[in-house]
Write a protein that binds this DNA or RNA. Sequence first.
DNA 1: GCAACTAGTTTCAAAATGAAATCAGATGGA
DNA 2: TCCATCTGATTTCATTTTGAAACTAGTTGC
Lengths: 173, 173
Amino acid sequence: MDIELRSGCPINLTMEVMGDRWSLIIIRDIMFGNRRHFRELLTHSEEGIASNILAARLKRLLSLGFISKRDDPSHSQKAIYSLTEPAIQLVPVFAMIGAWGRRHLPVSEELSIRAELLEEGGPPLWDEFMEDLRQIHIVDPIGGANGTCTSAVLAKLTAAFLEVRARSSSQVS
Amino acid sequence: MDIELRSGCPINLTMEVMGDRWSLIIIRDIMFGNRRHFRELLTHSEEGIASNILAARLKRLLSLGFISKRDDPSHSQKAIYSLTEPAIQLVPVFAMIGAWGRRHLPVSEELSIRAELLEEGGPPLWDEFMEDLRQIHIVDPIGGANGTCTSAVLAKLTAAFLEVRARSSSQVS
DNA sequence: GCAACTAGTTTCAAAATGAAATCAGATGGA
DNA sequence: TCCATCTGATTTCATTTTGAAACTAGTTGC
C-alpha cells in the first residue's frame, strides 16, 4: 500500500495520503468521537460510510502508519483502532481546516462548535489535546477505548457539542 | 455544481469541497506559482494533471466561488484565473498541511523549502502573504497575471526555492 | 499563409466508489 | 444447547470518476 509519489511537494504528498473522501473523516471520528471499533466507526458516522470503504481505508491507514490496531481483551473478535503520533499531529491541521470551513461553508451550528472551541483555544489547547490523545491512543489504548482513560479537552468539546444539540432540538419542538 | 452536504461538519464540508486529488493542488499552483492561465496550470504542473481533469476542476472551483475567471486583454482567447477571498484564506491551511507533510511524509528538500519558510514566518508572514494575494488576485488581477503587480513574500518564497534547486542540481553534477 | 499557441472537448479503457447482501466466528441469554 | 445478535469484515455488481491521448476550433505572430 504505497503512496503514489507524483511529486515530493508537502502539499501534494499530504493530498495523496489524506486527499480522498474518507481518510480524514475516519481519523476525525477516532480523534474527536473516540470511536475505536469498526462498528462504532461504521454506524455512528454522520456521513454514512459503506463498510467495504471503511475496511479498505482502515487497512490503508494502518499500512501507512497513521493508525494502529490491537485486539480488545474484552472480546476476542473486537479490534481497537488507535491513532499514531503522526495522526495525533494532525490536530493543528484539523483546527485550521475547521476554522476555514466554518467561515466559508454552510456548516451546522451543532457540528461546528468543536471547531470553534479548537480555534479559540489556539496552540495551547491543541498541545493539551495532543497530550491527552497520546495518553488515550499510545500510552493506554485499551483504557482509552473503554473510557477508563479520558481527556479533559475531549470532555469539554463533547459537552459543548451536546449542549448546542440540546439547545437546538428544544428550539425545534 | 453543488456540494453533497452529507453533514454540516466543517471538516466534512471542507473535504467535500477540497478533498479530491486535484482541487487543492490547482489552488496551490495559482497561489504559490502564480499560474494564471489554463496552459500554465497544465504544463508547469509538477504532478502532471490531465487537461480534461483540469478543465473540470476549474469549472467546479469557479462555480463554488473559490476562483474567478476573466478575459486577458493581451489575447482574446486567454483567460486569467484568480483566487477569491475564500481561497486566499486557505493560506494558514496550506501552512499547516505543509508543516505536517514535511514532518511525516517523504518530501523533497527542493519542494518543501516554501513550506518551511511559511511555517517559520508564522501568522505574521501568512497575513502579509494574504494581503499580497488580495492585491494580485482581487485588486489588480491583470497586473498580477502579467507580473506588473508582484508580491514581496512570493518573491522571497520563489527565491528560496530556486536557490535550493540550484544547490541540489550542482550536487548532482 | 502557416506554424505555434490558446482553452478547452471527446473518446474510451481502467480504476474507484457505494449500496446491499453475505460471511464466519464469538458472545450472551434462555 | 440453541439461537439471536454482534463482531469485523468480504463479495458482488452497477455506477461514477479518473486519466491518457487524440482532437477541435479559434488566435496570434512571423
